[in-house]
Design a protein around this nucleic acid. Structure first.
Length: 613
RNA sequence: GGUUCCGUAGCUCAGCUGGAUAGAGCAUCUGCCUUCUAAGCAGAGGGUCUCAGGUUCGAAUCCUGACGGAAUCACCA
């Protein structure tokens, strides 16, 4: 939709020219929605012009106001200090209302120049189930996908799965040693949890082994030999843990053997690896389904970890990289304030960034996208800076399209989640809890008694998920967030169910209105309706801003405000028993308009709304 | 130590491309359901926008500095 105030801007520009003999551009004219405490629809700020025209705010305001009245574009104005409050005629609101209900919502929000995006989000490891951090990642990624798509871009989603490496070998080893052939089926355990349990078991067994070793002759000898002056035994062994794993540990040796076997394609190892990963994927899929997200493509590190070496060679040929005497390859980024960074190990194997260089090249071949968005926590800011700068030095065209959507880490009221301390919030548990809370609330209300059990479960599920998803998405993506599990199941106030409730009220009204809705716009427009219309008129801008900033929280907060305005309207005015038929129709039309926007907006957050609750 | 990010009500967060008396929710207290779904509405209390300078007609917002907190600075991913 075109800017609905364009005509007012144009008129003001003409007034500035004719009355004050001054040429201004639209961007210099500051016109904002009027604050609620004052009378008026929009406010023109006069301060910038005082000096230029050498007149008082009252003089300027009076002149502008009366000119606008004369031309009929406003019906009245008032002046408070340097603020000129303008009241527009009802025809302004009627016209915009007409445009809103006649145009199609989907086409109204589209941008002029669509581009092509690829979004990578989620990106889990296969040795542990998904947790709260993944949930934030997934919800942000999915919502950004929906928003970009809604405004007309071509968007694909993908994820990288870290399915190889020492971690999964630990799970495999623990399974081989202790599982006695158990499977997710035989133990009725969700696959990702099943494998995760063996990872935890490995860590426990390793800890026991390490503990025993510490008091052995060898352990005591190492402690005496290698400890720093004044270092306590516990400090030393904390520090030595990694080295113990690599040098002395039986379990460490066995898991590294497994890794080598994996890398040399040992059949038995590969079969076990594949079996366990399949268990995990099945578990992940169940969680993705509950979250209602999906991926257009998957990249597995087992297939990509060897990529990128040709790019390294190419970079060496063009002197972008430097080879050290030991054979390791580096990039020097000190000229732009970063460090020297390794891109290939001395033994010729890849590091993290090598794979990333290769993976982007592959993706670009496949997608030819303008933008590659990586939804990854902000702890990796440095890595992505290095990656982008490296691509730039390689003069690869897609280097300008790399966006690190760096959301902040999720913390609990007690501090950071730590797997060692068992404070990690499991994704499935969390979903379970929020649905449970929705169920308890629904039972107390008893509104759903006429539904079948399946229908009721679906509604409860949607309400619970709306609470969880909204709770996370309302916080600005880039900010770290404190996640209080108790607050996350709240269904009152600034929450998902509050917005759902507004929608449900609208749906209920429409259900109860038997005759067909007539589009009419003869009614007098009250302030609540102006507010609702204005919000709907600004929807496309909000959505486009959210897309531009890759930040769903903008949209989330807008939707809350819209729902709040509707709840207020609902309590102030009777809709179905308004004084006249035409007034009933007008109010239903407004309500339906709001409902459509709420539904579309929540859809863009990845939240499905039931029509009853 | 270098770099980056953050600091707004008791708590969780909006507001940050500069505009009027800084807003919500939670929590505390008070009203409103025989009338469209009370997961709602109306109201009360709660603030040195970390601090100090600067730019400006105007600063929570922009700039500089200090203080406090976080992340990162691996031949890990």
């Amino acid at each position: 939709m075109q800017n609905y105030l364009d005509y007012l801007y144009n008129e003001l520009i003409i007034i500035f020219k004719n009355k004050f003999n001054h040429l201004v551009s639209e961007s210099e004219v500051v016109l904002t929605p009027c604050k609620k405490e004052f009378e008026g629809d929009f406010t023109l700020i006069l301060f910038p012009w005082l000096k230029i025209f050498n007149k008082s705010p009252d003089e300027i305001g009076e002149e502008i106001g009366s000119s606008l009245i004369q031309s009929g574009s406003i019906t009245s104005f008032n002046l408070i200090k340097g603020f000129l409050n303008l009241t527009l005629p009802d025809s302004f609101w009627h016209n915009n209302f007409q445009k809103l209900i006649e145009s199609n919502l989907e086409s109204r929000i589209c941008i002029a120049q669509p581009e092509k995006f690829l979004i990578e989000y989620c990106s889990p490891n296969t040795n542990k189930p998904l947790h709260l951090g993944h949930i934030r990642n997934i919800l942000i990624g999915w919502s950004v996908y929906r928003i970009l798509k809604a405004i007309g871009h071509t968007v694909n989603t993908t994820q990288v799965i870290n399915d190889r490496g020492i971690a999964i070998c630990k799970s495999m080893l623990a399974w081989k040693l202790f599982a006695k052939g158990a499977t997710p089926e035989s133990t009725s355990t969700k696959g990702d949890h099943f494998v995760g349990n063996f990872y935890v078991l490995f860590e426990e067994k390793f800890k026991e082994e390490y503990k025993a070793w510490q008091s052995s002759v060898e352990g005591e000898f190492i402690f005496k030999e290698l400890k720093k002056i004044d270092e306590s035994e516990s400090d030393f062994f904390k520090r030595y843990k990694n080295e113990y794993f690599n040098k002395d540990s039986q379990l460490g040796r066995l898991s590294k053997e497994l890794l080598l076997k994996w890398e040399s394609n040992d059949e038995e190892t590969r079969i076990l690896w594949n079996t366990m990963n399949q268990w995990v994927y099945k578990g992940f899929d169940a969680t993705f389904q509950k979250l209602k997200v999906n991926f257009d493509s998957y990249y597995f590190e087992s297939q990509t970890y060897l990529l990128g070496k040709d790019i390294i060679q190419d970079g060496l040929n063009h002197d972008v990289f430097i080879k050290d005497s030991d054979g390791s390859v580096w990039i020097d980024l000190t000229d732009i304030g970063l460090d020297r960074k390794i891109v290939l190990r001395s033994d010729g194997t890849s590091v993290y960034i090598t794979q990333d260089l290769g993976t982007i090249a592959e993706r670009h071949k496949r997608y030819q996208a303008d933008h590659y968005i990586y939804v990854v926590a902000d702890e990796q800011d440095y890595h992505f800076k290095v990656l982008t700068e490296t691509l730039k030095k390689l003069k690869l065209q897609y280097s300008n399209g790399i966006h690190h959507l760096n959301y902040g880490m999720v913390e609990l009221p007690t501090g950071r989640m730590k797997s060692r301390e068992g404070t990690v919030v499991d994704a499935d548990d969390l979903i379970q809890e929020v649905i449970q809370a929705a169920s308890v609330n629904a039972q107390e209300r008893g509104e759903l008694s006429m539904l079948t059990i399946d229908e009721r479960d679906k509604v409860i599920f949607d309400i619970g998920m709306s609470a969880l998803k909204y709770f996370i998405l309302k916080v600005q993506a880039k900010k770290k967030m404190i996640f209080n599990p108790e607050d996350s199941v709240d269904m009152q106030g600034h929450t998902g169910p509050y917005i759902v409730n507004a929608f449900v009220r609208i749906k209920s009204i429409i259900r109860k209105f038997n005759s067909s809705i007539v589009k009419n716009n003869s009614a007098e427009v009250n302030n609540s309706e102006k507010q609702l219309l204005l919000s709907c008129m600004e929807y496309s801008k909000i959505l486009q801003d959210s897309g531009k900033q890759l930040d769903p929280s903008l949209l989330a907060n807008y939707l809350y405000q819209l729902a709040k305005d509707f709840h207020k309207y609902y309590s102030e005015y009777r809709i179905l028993n308004a004084e006249s038929d035409s007034l009933i129709n007008w109010r239903i039309n407004i309500s339906k308009l709001v409902g459509d926007h709420l539904e579309h907006g929540m859809y863009c957050l990845g939240i499905e709304m039931p029509s009853r609750m």
